[in-house]
Write a protein that binds this DNA or RNA. Structure first.
Lengths: 132, 132
DNA sequence: TTTTAAATTTAAACTGAATCTAAATTTAAA
DNA sequence: TTTAAATTTAGATTCAGTTTAAATTTAAAA
């Protein structure tokens, strides 16, 4: 009758995401649970990820492809994806508040979320390519 | 032996995207081709969309869900999605160049593309909801 | 406590967007 | 022409994610 919150499987999933220093997919999370000897059903992982995202405990990222990735860092922030090696980095420079204000003004929307994705070539790939 | 460019099916797909004033999915494009009496294979539409995207003639948008949408407007620009009705609007206020410069500086990446997605509640949904 | 009903977890089937394959076709240039 | 590379096609395949219905767990009332 009462909504439950951080149930056991949800906590397991949450801990995996928080411990990760990359941006794991649902499949990654299942793998890591398995290698810890934990068994959580496929659908439960997805349900848990949806729950955790709705609660704002983690963030869902739609970067390349159809697979969502998850990020446990507290504050919302932009990401940058290397188109050459697929590496994902955090962008810790926040967007200017003034720009956001203008977007709200111009669109008439009430903003609830922003998702900023940059794409480019990371330093390592740039040097390894030398030319162009 | 030579790379072909705007082949017949690619042109058909391109025209559909350019004529659209919404952001059609691949399935939308196939429907519109059919209703014009044109027949283009499913895979060809995807191949054409990939080609057109790589050439920079159109833009691929990953908004909600797993389905890509396509946009024929020339300049790259941000989008805003209504979480209530699903409506998608263009955001014509460009991000401050100074912010982008700082992102380049901080990340060390060479930027090739930006994808900015705002989410929120559109004016129509806000008024229809009245409260909160 | 015990009972009850709602919420959650589970395994397995299903969905649907996108990719892959191999064959057929088209095209550019020799 | 002839040839070889590029493209199109239909259909099979993949795979992330959702749905289903049954089993389980839980909170709170009795």
């Amino acid at each position: 009758m009462t909504k439950r919150n951080l149930t056991a499987p949800r906590k397991l999933v949450y801990d995996i995401v928080m411990q990760a220093d990359d941006h794991p997919t649902a499949a990654d999370i299942i793998d890591r649970l398995k290698s810890q000897g934990q068994s959580v059903a496929y659908a439960t992982v997805y349900n848990s990820l949806r729950y955790l995202t709705e609660e704002g405990l983690i963030h869902e990222l739609k970067l390349e492809g159809k697979t969502s990735r998850y990020d446990g860092r507290g504050e919302d922030h932009a990401h940058i994806v290397c188109t050459s090696c697929g590496r994902v980095d955090e962008v810790m420079v926040p967007p200017p508040a003034e720009w956001l204000a203008r977007v709200v003004e111009e669109s008439g929307y009430e903003l609830t979320e922003e998702q900023f994705i940059f794409k480019g070539v990371c330093p390592a790939c740039r040097t390894s390519k030398q030319k162009n």
